[in-house]
Design a protein around this nucleic acid. Sequence first.
RNA 1: CGGGGAGUAGCGCAGUUGGUAGCGCACAUGGUUUGGGACCAUGGGGUCGCAGGUUCGAGUCCUGUCUCCCCGACCA
Length: 581
Amino acid sequence: MKWTESFLPTLKEQPKNIEIPSHALSIRVGLIRQSISGVHTYLPLGWKVCLNIINIIREEMNKIGAQEILLPALSTAELWEKTGRLAGWGAEIFRLKDRGNRELCLSPTHEEPITEFVSKEIHSYKELPCIFYQIQTKFRDEPRPRGGVLRAREFIMKDSYSFDVDEASFMESYAKHRNAYEKILTRCGLSYKIVDASSGLMGSGKSEEFMVSSPYGEDSIVTCKNCEYSANKETGKIGEVKSTSKEQSSELKKVHTPVKGTVDEISKFLNVSADKLMKSILYFYDSEPVFVLLRGNHEISMDKLNKIKIANTETKGTFRIATPNEVKTLINADVGYISPVSLPKPIKVLAANSLKNSNNLVTGANENLYHFTGVDIERDVQVTQWEDIEIPDNGDPCPKCNKEINLEPVIELGHIFDLGKKYSTPLGATVLDKSGQKKSIYMGSYGIGIERIMAAAIETNNDPEGIIWPMEIAPFKVIIIPLNISVPEIKATAEKIYSELSSFEPLFDDRDVSAGIKFKDANLIGIPIQIIIGENSLKNNEVEIKTRDKKINTKVNKELVLETIQNIYKEDRTKFKAIKP
RNA sequence: CGGGGAGUAGCGCAGUUGGUAGCGCACAUGGUUUGGGACCAUGGGGUCGCAGGUUCGAGUCCUGUCUCCCCGACCA
């Protein structure tokens, strides 16, 4: 491709109001332009990168026997009602009406449409296992899009769905996907972590996420400094606190705290650290009030809480935080001044494991503007149940080895789910098994974000001058830079090299502009290999070959360019193979 | 949804007590340049986010509204 025949709008200036490096670079390099909040146009260069990523994904999906299809983006609201997800997605699902006033939506994901399709088409266990995938635009009305394509309202996802007769067979489909995802991300030049995750709205069982470490990531994972343990912050377990020798318990005392009842205010006022505060939050478990106790420096994990069954109740209920009015009525004090300590009528107490054996704590005194100090949880609180209900924090003990864990921000690139029969049962996707029995199909779903891969690749491969594309997703592998196109010899050499290298998708910077502009642009766009043709080296019949990652900077005879480039490319392939056999 | 900020040329910005709409870059034409974002000359480009209002007169003051960005809440 010749530069003068291409649309490559690079920007010299940093776009204003943009904080995230990959976002700013995407704009400066001319990969994307925002249309409306969270919705983007892909320019030729950006789309080329997306297509490269898509090609890798296609190859790896086809290798595991998945078949590509294309489901519609539009579906009826009714379909989503059948699985309860219309309400589950809430405002995040884009909805519209057709001319016949029928309620439609733009699919945010495709479990429902694919399951409906399969329910009509697949009837026998002999047709299973089966994997369908598609690469398609998804629509999610995110409350706050950010970071360019990192969190968008319209984005491209490869989503696949596996259909198996039983769990054992599903496990194989799942393992195939897990392996394919590892290959995809490795080929995209990313180093990733696979962590246990919360399946949230999507699934019912196990799920795992593919994460890339980045300070601009919106998710967090916990990893152990000592062992292999890692998980999403939401689901990460907290180990049992070591029974360290506990300090002498002081007497329970009621103190005047004429400040707001927040952890910050109270810890500042009493000059105690947040971890010495005991957060007491009133919830309703169905209709029964329950105190939930946390350490002051910890947050509750709703994901964990929702999995807990309160002892001696028959069925699993749901938790709902009490309203300020309900708190006032029940306790006669405001939120921030309540606790289960010295309550006239007892309320069930669900306490976080991290509070075990704790003493000299501060908590609400059930009277506005008063707190207790010297609380010993064993002595002063009737805990009915101990559970792991907190979001882990830096320094908490690892659930596997009890050493310290570490919180780390990450970008989520992929998420794979064990769906079980969550969709097949309500939508009637069944097969007849060997004995002629009707069985709901065992499903899995697997998503990976195309633009997020692009953004993550930029986020983890850039320097102050621009992007450093990983070879396989680079929009061009090679850029040919004749320093002065108006010198006939330079022009002729450049053109010759350009045609020699056609198999490497070279970009030929044939603009008649100063060398500085060409160097800056080449570094900004981040094409992996640069071939520089200038008068100085041409005197010795040589041209310069540099890699954008600065590892190679050499001069070679102009007849040996093709061979040199082939070697550099081969070397890069070897690197890829070395990471993942 | 809460808090903060911003909308003036394609991009980045200035615009004083209300008085003819500006600068840099980019763009076009001609010329000089050509190893790290060159130079000279000339030129095109704006209903100042939108709608009302005050005024002889509004980019500027008032009211409403839309959009975008940042922090938080929420969220595969």
